[in-house]
């Protein structure tokens, strides 16, 4: 664990890995899209609208994955005080929020032709919507403090509280939905999914995961650099103490 605690180590490793994750992402997503759009057959029930599945399902997977990753990073940060853990969580949050938004939007665009409605208060949709709010809350909290360190630490506590709550929300919304039975919903799974559809789906899933790590590494690197900038500026102020001149400008009192 401590081998990777050094931010410079992370910079080294991520620097080496970046081109590989980038290339993997592009190749996997391209392959997945090609197979999904051109090679896979249309669904016998849903026709060509099933093409949306190749983005909707992977983004939904990623929405859940990102939150788990975020909560895991938060836990590592709180329990083992790993210096990069909180930054890891902070970096993952916007990616997860984007995926959740895409899951909701593509789901809505898929739902309209299939279910006849843009939105349905069914358990899955509602709990994904709440998950979206949890992401937004985390991002808002982390950015609400002048001291960034305080922000990520508070965020980590929130992330864990939210993580405990996610299954509770899922369960309670399930209950709520079955009690107030809504209009009947078409089931998405006709026949078990065929290999010709499964393969592009998995390719997209893995491709989106490498995309996640690609963007996550960029964002963690940015956080590390931002930390160095802050340290630099603090040293500057200490080395060259400032005072305020008569007109309110800050001037160095050295020399």
């Amino acid at each position: 664990m401590h081998r990777f605690a050094n931010p410079n180590r992370f910079m080294q490793i991520s620097g080496a890995l970046l081109p590989w994750t980038a290339a993997s992402t592009v190749l996997l997503v391209a392959a997945g899209l090609y197979l999904g759009l051109f090679r896979a057959p249309p669904d016998y029930q849903q026709g060509e609208s099933v093409r949306i599945m190749y983005v909707h399902v992977p983004t939904s997977w990623m929405a859940m994955f990102c939150y788990t990753f975020l909560a895991g990073s938060a836990a590592v940060g709180l329990i083992w005080k790993h210096p990069l853990a909180d930054l890891s969580a902070k970096a993952a949050a916007p990616i997860g929020a984007c995926f959740t938004l895409l899951a909701l939007a593509t789901g809505s665009l898929w739902g309209k032709p299939m279910w006849g409605t843009w939105w349905e208060w069914d358990a899955r949709l509602t709990s994904v919507l709440v998950l979206f709010f949890l992401y937004l809350g985390y991002i808002a909290l982390v950015n609400a403090f002048d001291d960034p360190t305080r922000g990520v630490r508070a965020g980590s506590i929130l992330a864990l509280v939210g993580f405990v709550n996610v299954p509770i929300i899922k369960f309670s919304v399930d209950w709520w939905n079955t009690l107030h039975q809504p209009a009947s919903v078409f089931r998405m799974d006709g026949p078990t999914i065929h290999t010709s559809m499964l393969i592009p789906l998995l390719l997209m899933g893995v491709g989106f995961t490498t995309y996640f790590f690609w963007v996550w590494m960029l964002r963690v690197r940015t956080e590390i650099v931002a930390g160095k900038i802050r340290a630099h500026r603090r040293r500057q102020v200490q080395r060259a103490p400032v005072d305020f001149a008569g007109d309110g400008r800050a001037v160095s009192t050295e020399g």
Binding site: A140, A144, V161, I169
Partner: peptide, 12 residues
């Protein structure tokens, strides 16, 4: 901010 954080947790 407090409202944004707490309301989703209140839903259950």
């Amino acid at each position: 901010l407090l409202s944004l954080l707490v309301l989703p947790l209140y839903i259950p």
